[in-house]
Protein backbone atom coordinates (compact mmCIF):
# COMPACT_ATOMS: atom_id res chain seq x y z
CA UNK A 1 0.00 0.00 0.00
CA UNK A 2 1.53 3.32 -1.03
CA UNK A 3 1.50 6.54 0.87
CA UNK A 4 0.78 8.76 -2.10
CA UNK A 5 -2.49 10.63 -1.53
CA UNK A 6 -5.29 10.38 -4.02
CA UNK A 7 -7.68 12.61 -2.09
CA UNK A 8 -6.54 15.53 0.00
CA UNK A 9 -9.20 17.80 1.51
CA UNK A 10 -8.57 20.61 3.96
CA UNK A 11 -11.20 22.74 5.70
CA UNK A 12 -13.84 21.92 3.14
CA UNK A 13 -17.14 23.71 3.76
CA UNK A 14 -20.36 23.48 1.82
CA UNK A 15 -23.70 25.09 2.48
CA UNK A 16 -26.98 25.33 0.59
CA UNK A 17 -29.56 28.08 0.62
CA UNK A 18 -32.84 26.77 1.99
CA UNK A 19 -35.42 29.52 1.64
CA UNK A 20 -34.05 32.52 3.47
CA UNK A 21 -31.50 30.55 5.50
CA UNK A 22 -28.21 28.90 4.63
CA UNK A 23 -27.83 25.31 5.68
CA UNK A 24 -24.30 24.27 6.41
CA UNK A 25 -23.86 20.70 5.16
CA UNK A 26 -20.11 20.20 5.47
CA UNK A 27 -18.12 21.92 8.19
CA UNK A 28 -14.33 22.19 7.94
CA UNK A 29 -13.79 18.68 6.64
CA UNK A 30 -10.21 17.44 6.61
CA UNK A 31 -10.07 14.18 4.75
CA UNK A 32 -7.47 12.29 2.80
CA UNK A 33 -7.25 8.92 1.09
CA UNK A 34 -4.06 7.18 0.11
CA UNK A 35 -3.59 5.38 -3.16
CA UNK A 36 -4.83 1.79 -2.92
CA UNK A 37 -6.96 2.41 0.18
CA UNK A 38 -10.50 1.05 0.57
CA UNK A 39 -12.31 3.63 2.66
CA UNK A 40 -15.91 3.70 3.84
CA UNK A 41 -17.60 6.98 4.71
CA UNK A 42 -20.26 6.06 7.21
CA UNK A 43 -23.06 8.29 8.34
CA UNK A 44 -26.77 8.48 8.87
CA UNK A 45 -29.16 10.04 6.45
CA UNK A 46 -28.66 13.83 6.21
CA UNK A 47 -25.17 13.72 7.67
CA UNK A 48 -23.59 15.22 4.55
CA UNK A 49 -21.97 12.05 3.21
CA UNK A 50 -23.62 12.33 -0.23
CA UNK A 51 -22.55 15.99 -0.51
CA UNK A 52 -19.04 14.90 0.39
CA UNK A 53 -19.21 12.20 -2.28
CA UNK A 54 -20.40 14.72 -4.88
CA UNK A 55 -17.50 17.02 -4.06
CA UNK A 56 -15.02 14.12 -4.15
CA UNK A 57 -16.56 13.06 -7.47
CA UNK A 58 -16.16 16.59 -8.90
CA UNK A 59 -19.90 16.87 -9.43
CA UNK A 60 -20.35 19.68 -6.94
CA UNK A 61 -18.21 22.61 -5.90
CA UNK A 62 -17.02 23.50 -2.45
CA UNK A 63 -17.55 26.89 -0.78
CA UNK A 64 -14.34 27.02 1.21
CA UNK A 65 -11.19 24.99 1.69
CA UNK A 66 -9.03 23.08 -0.71
CA UNK A 67 -9.42 19.76 -2.47
CA UNK A 68 -6.80 17.98 -4.54
CA UNK A 69 -7.53 14.80 -6.48
CA UNK A 70 -4.45 12.94 -7.58
CA UNK A 71 -2.58 16.21 -7.22
CA UNK A 72 -5.05 18.25 -9.26
CA UNK A 73 -6.46 21.27 -7.36
CA UNK A 74 -10.15 20.63 -7.96
CA UNK A 75 -11.26 23.75 -6.05
CA UNK A 76 -9.56 25.86 -8.74
CA UNK A 77 -10.71 23.84 -11.72
CA UNK A 78 -13.42 24.92 -14.17
CA UNK A 79 -16.40 22.80 -15.21
CA UNK A 80 -14.98 21.89 -18.63
CA UNK A 81 -11.85 20.41 -17.05
CA UNK A 82 -13.87 18.77 -14.28
CA UNK A 83 -15.75 16.84 -16.99
CA UNK A 84 -12.46 15.43 -18.23
CA UNK A 85 -11.30 14.68 -14.66
CA UNK A 86 -14.53 12.79 -13.96
CA UNK A 87 -13.94 10.75 -17.07
CA UNK A 88 -10.27 10.00 -16.47
CA UNK A 89 -9.85 9.90 -12.70
CA UNK A 90 -13.15 8.69 -11.23
CA UNK A 91 -15.28 5.61 -11.67
CA UNK A 92 -18.77 6.11 -10.27
CA UNK A 93 -20.87 3.32 -8.82
CA UNK A 94 -24.33 4.49 -7.81
CA UNK A 95 -26.91 3.02 -5.49
CA UNK A 96 -29.51 2.86 -8.27
CA UNK A 97 -26.90 1.73 -10.84
CA UNK A 98 -27.73 4.68 -13.11
CA UNK A 99 -27.48 2.64 -16.27
CA UNK A 100 -28.99 4.06 -19.46
CA UNK A 101 -32.07 1.91 -20.00
CA UNK A 102 -32.13 2.19 -23.82
CA UNK A 103 -28.53 0.96 -24.22
CA UNK A 104 -27.30 -2.59 -23.99
CA UNK A 105 -24.91 -3.79 -21.27
CA UNK A 106 -21.97 -3.36 -23.64
CA UNK A 107 -23.07 0.11 -24.74
CA UNK A 108 -23.40 1.16 -21.09
CA UNK A 109 -20.01 -0.24 -20.16
CA UNK A 110 -18.05 1.36 -22.97
CA UNK A 111 -19.71 4.76 -22.61
CA UNK A 112 -16.86 6.42 -20.58
CA UNK A 113 -14.38 5.31 -23.23
CA UNK A 114 -16.59 6.67 -26.00
CA UNK A 115 -16.76 9.95 -24.07
CA UNK A 116 -12.98 9.92 -24.06
CA UNK A 117 -12.96 9.75 -27.86
CA UNK A 118 -12.38 6.03 -28.40
CA UNK A 119 -14.14 4.31 -31.24
CA UNK A 120 -16.64 1.61 -30.42
CA UNK A 121 -14.57 -1.36 -31.52
CA UNK A 122 -11.45 -0.43 -29.57
CA UNK A 123 -13.58 0.43 -26.52
CA UNK A 124 -15.25 -2.99 -26.66
CA UNK A 125 -11.86 -4.69 -26.94
CA UNK A 126 -10.49 -2.70 -23.99
CA UNK A 127 -13.45 -3.64 -21.80
CA UNK A 128 -13.56 -7.32 -22.70
CA UNK A 129 -11.26 -8.40 -19.85
CA UNK A 130 -13.29 -6.54 -17.21
CA UNK A 131 -16.54 -7.92 -18.62
CA UNK A 132 -15.16 -11.45 -18.37
CA UNK A 133 -13.87 -10.82 -14.86
CA UNK A 134 -17.30 -9.62 -13.73
CA UNK A 135 -19.03 -12.55 -15.40
CA UNK A 136 -21.06 -10.43 -17.81
CA UNK A 137 -19.90 -12.00 -21.08
CA UNK A 138 -23.23 -13.68 -21.67
CA UNK A 139 -25.17 -10.53 -20.97
CA UNK A 140 -23.53 -7.90 -23.11
CA UNK A 141 -26.40 -7.64 -25.60
CA UNK A 142 -29.04 -7.46 -22.89
CA UNK A 143 -30.78 -4.32 -21.78
CA UNK A 144 -30.46 -3.35 -18.07
CA UNK A 145 -34.13 -4.13 -17.58
CA UNK A 146 -33.38 -7.76 -18.44
CA UNK A 147 -30.85 -8.12 -15.60
CA UNK A 148 -31.11 -8.75 -11.87
CA UNK A 149 -30.12 -6.07 -9.36
CA UNK A 150 -26.76 -7.71 -8.67
CA UNK A 151 -26.04 -8.02 -12.37
CA UNK A 152 -26.94 -4.38 -12.95
CA UNK A 153 -24.58 -3.33 -10.21
CA UNK A 154 -21.85 -5.45 -11.78
CA UNK A 155 -22.50 -3.64 -15.06
CA UNK A 156 -22.16 -0.33 -13.21
CA UNK A 157 -18.89 -1.56 -11.66
CA UNK A 158 -17.66 -2.67 -15.10
CA UNK A 159 -18.50 0.78 -16.48
CA UNK A 160 -16.61 2.39 -13.61
CA UNK A 161 -13.59 0.13 -14.09
CA UNK A 162 -13.28 0.22 -17.86
CA UNK A 163 -11.83 3.71 -17.93
CA UNK A 164 -9.14 2.57 -15.44
CA UNK A 165 -9.78 5.43 -13.00
CA UNK A 166 -7.56 6.50 -10.10
CA UNK A 167 -10.53 6.31 -7.75
CA UNK A 168 -13.65 4.15 -7.53
CA UNK A 169 -16.39 6.14 -5.87
CA UNK A 170 -19.33 4.03 -4.70
CA UNK A 171 -22.48 5.61 -3.29
CA UNK A 172 -24.45 3.05 -1.24
CA UNK A 173 -23.50 0.29 -3.73
CA UNK A 174 -25.53 -2.34 -1.91
CA UNK A 175 -28.46 -0.09 -1.00
CA UNK A 176 -30.77 -1.47 -3.68
CA UNK A 177 -29.65 -5.08 -3.43
CA UNK A 178 -30.73 -8.05 -1.36
CA UNK A 179 -28.25 -9.41 1.16
CA UNK A 180 -26.68 -12.07 -1.04
CA UNK A 181 -26.28 -9.75 -4.02
CA UNK A 182 -24.93 -7.09 -1.68
CA UNK A 183 -22.39 -9.48 -0.26
CA UNK A 184 -21.41 -10.50 -3.77
CA UNK A 185 -20.77 -6.85 -4.70
CA UNK A 186 -18.78 -6.24 -1.51
CA UNK A 187 -16.66 -9.32 -2.21
CA UNK A 188 -16.00 -7.87 -5.63
CA UNK A 189 -14.95 -4.57 -4.01
CA UNK A 190 -12.52 -6.45 -1.79
CA UNK A 191 -11.13 -8.18 -4.84
CA UNK A 192 -10.75 -4.88 -6.67
CA UNK A 193 -9.03 -3.42 -3.63
CA UNK A 194 -6.65 -6.33 -3.57
CA UNK A 195 -5.94 -5.66 -7.22
CA UNK A 196 -4.72 -2.19 -6.21
CA UNK A 197 -7.77 -0.04 -6.83
CA UNK A 198 -8.52 2.89 -4.55
CA UNK A 199 -12.11 2.74 -3.37
CA UNK A 200 -14.20 5.24 -1.44
CA UNK A 201 -17.56 3.82 -0.44
CA UNK A 202 -20.40 5.86 1.04
CA UNK A 203 -22.79 3.92 3.26
CA UNK A 204 -25.14 4.29 6.17
CA UNK A 205 -24.76 0.61 7.08
CA UNK A 206 -22.14 -0.31 9.67
CA UNK A 207 -22.00 -3.91 8.36
CA UNK A 208 -21.22 -2.72 4.85
CA UNK A 209 -18.61 -0.26 6.15
CA UNK A 210 -16.86 -3.17 7.93
CA UNK A 211 -15.85 -4.56 4.52
CA UNK A 212 -13.61 -1.52 4.03
CA UNK A 213 -10.07 -1.21 5.28
CA UNK A 214 -10.85 2.11 6.96
CA UNK A 215 -14.04 3.75 8.15
CA UNK A 216 -14.61 7.48 8.45
CA UNK A 217 -17.72 8.49 10.35
CA UNK A 218 -19.52 11.71 9.48
CA UNK A 219 -22.31 13.24 11.54
CA UNK A 220 -23.97 16.62 10.89
CA UNK A 221 -21.34 17.58 8.35
CA UNK A 222 -18.41 16.97 10.64
CA UNK A 223 -15.91 14.12 10.75
CA UNK A 224 -15.56 12.70 14.17
CA UNK A 225 -14.13 9.21 13.76
CA UNK A 226 -11.50 7.76 11.49
CA UNK A 227 -10.59 4.17 12.25
CA UNK A 228 -8.89 1.26 10.58
CA UNK A 229 -11.03 -1.91 10.47
Amino acid sequence: MGTEQIISMKNVCKSYKMGTERLSVLKNIDFSVDKGEFTAILGPSGSGKSTLMNIIGCMDTLDNGTYALNGIPIHQTKEKELTSIRNHEIGFIFQNYHLIPTYTVMQNIIMPLLMRGHDRKSAETDCREIIDMLGLSERIQHKPSELSGGQRQRVAIARALCSKPSLLLADEPTGALDQSSGTEVLRLFTKLHEMGNTIVMITHDMNVAKWAQRTVRIVDGEMFEDKTN
Partner: peptide
Protein backbone atom coordinates in the same frame (compact mmCIF):
# COMPACT_ATOMS: atom_id res chain seq x y z
CA UNK B 1 -32.63 14.41 -17.22
CA UNK B 2 -31.20 11.48 -15.23
CA UNK B 3 -29.65 10.02 -18.35
CA UNK B 4 -28.03 13.39 -19.04
CA UNK B 5 -26.80 13.38 -15.45
CA UNK B 6 -25.28 9.91 -15.93
CA UNK B 7 -23.57 10.96 -19.14
CA UNK B 8 -22.18 14.05 -17.44
CA UNK B 9 -21.06 12.05 -14.40
CA UNK B 10 -19.08 9.63 -16.53
CA UNK B 11 -17.44 12.42 -18.49
CA UNK B 12 -19.88 13.58 -21.12
CA UNK B 13 -19.05 17.17 -22.03
CA UNK B 14 -21.55 19.96 -22.68
Amino acid sequence: TQEIGILKAIGGSR
